[in-house]
Amino acid sequence: MPPVHNPDSSAGDLHPAKTPLWTAIILAGQRPEGDPMAAYCNVTYKALIPINGQTMLERVARALIASPDVGKIVIMAQSPEELKSGLSPDLATQDGIAFVASNNGIATSIHNVIGTAIAPWPVLVTTADNALLTGEILDCFFQAHNGQDVAVAVVERQTMLAAYPDARRTWLKFRGGAYSGANLFALHNAAAKPAVAFWSAVEKDRKKGWKIFAHFGPWLLLRALTRTIGFKQAMAQAGERMALRAEPIILPIAEAAIDVDKPDDLELVTGILERREG
């Protein structure tokens, strides 16, 4: 098995240089006590759960490699060497993919590498359980990005329910709609660093939008709770507090917001991929 890339070395380019290409970070770690879904599927790491013949990690990596907007991929986990078994040999040895050891904090680990030779700007962050990621989803995201320092991909509830009426997701509710995260985060330049540092402080509350907005003062929290502010305006105001431009990117593809957090998700994703891949 080839050696793990050292954190102080950069990954090679997957595509010829043109305009600045994105560095894609795949978060593939898990809590020290293990992950319930990994235990459910009898694998060591959640990222190694197989779905229709490929691990989730492989699926995400292949979608990113195929994107003409992605120049480098960084796979981040506590034990990167073990995760190499989740990639086919042609991916595990590719110069364009680096394996970097993370610590126990997701946001801290990201903060340590963004803007360095390991992960030069701009940076796209996604997760290994984003098993339905496709080139179409990535194209929509990159085309909608217009220079925001921080951008977060979401799917509106009506889009999800029109395609999957029984899907159970976590919804952030604002004036004009409710949204579920799509596990794609754009960190465009050094101005995004305060947002990553902030995320480190609120990481445990990531599923509770109101707790996150509480950190920006009572007025924004009140408007979020009473749904008298739209999602875009709320993110813009939060970004202003950190001297950066932040916006949601609303994707028109329901599958973008379906990841694998519980057995029902795995069943849904497996069915989608079996139909998609024949």
Rank of each mutant, 00 (worst) to 15 (best):
L64R: 09
A92G: 03
K84I: 14
F216R: 03
R276N: 03
E203H: 08
P263V: 06
P80M: 06
F216I: 09
A131N: 02
V100S: 15
V4D: 00
A77M: 03
I229Q: 10
D259P: 02
D259A: 15
D90V: 08
Y179D: 03
R276I: 06
I272A: 10
T108F: 02
M242L: 15
P2G: 00
I73Y: 12
A201S: 10
I114D: 04
D90L: 05
G29R: 08
D129P: 07
D265K: 12
N146D: 12
P122D: 13
R206K: 14
A224N: 08
Q54Y: 08
E203N: 12
L220W: 02
A131G: 05
D129S: 13
V74N: 13
R31L: 14
L221N: 12
R157I: 02
A163F: 07
A61L: 07
A101P: 05
Y40D: 10
L57S: 10
R169V: 04
V43E: 14
R245C: 03
R157E: 09
P32E: 05
V202D: 07
P7A: 07
A92F: 01
A190C: 10
L184C: 01
R175Q: 15
L91C: 06
G181F: 07
L87T: 04
D95T: 09
P194S: 11
V43L: 01
E247W: 02
V113I: 15
S79P: 00
A28C: 12
A98R: 11
Q158W: 06
A246Y: 03
L124K: 08
P68T: 01
R169N: 03
D265A: 08
K208A: 08
I272M: 11
A131K: 13
G53L: 04
V100H: 05
A28Y: 07
N52A: 14
A24E: 12
V202H: 00
V4H: 01
G147E: 09
A246T: 15
A234N: 03
H145A: 14
G135I: 00
V70P: 00
V154D: 08
L268R: 14
E247P: 02
D13W: 07
K46G: 02
G209N: 11
S67T: 02
A178R: 12
Y179E: 07
M76I: 09
T170I: 13
L132K: 05
W210S: 12
W121S: 06
I26M: 05
K208G: 00
Q54F: 08
S9A: 07
R31F: 01
P120D: 03
D95H: 02
C41R: 10
D139A: 09
V4N: 01
L124R: 00
K204L: 06
V60Y: 00
I26K: 14
V113A: 00
D35Q: 08
T170G: 09
K173G: 10
R245E: 10
A162K: 11
L14K: 03
L57R: 13
R227E: 12
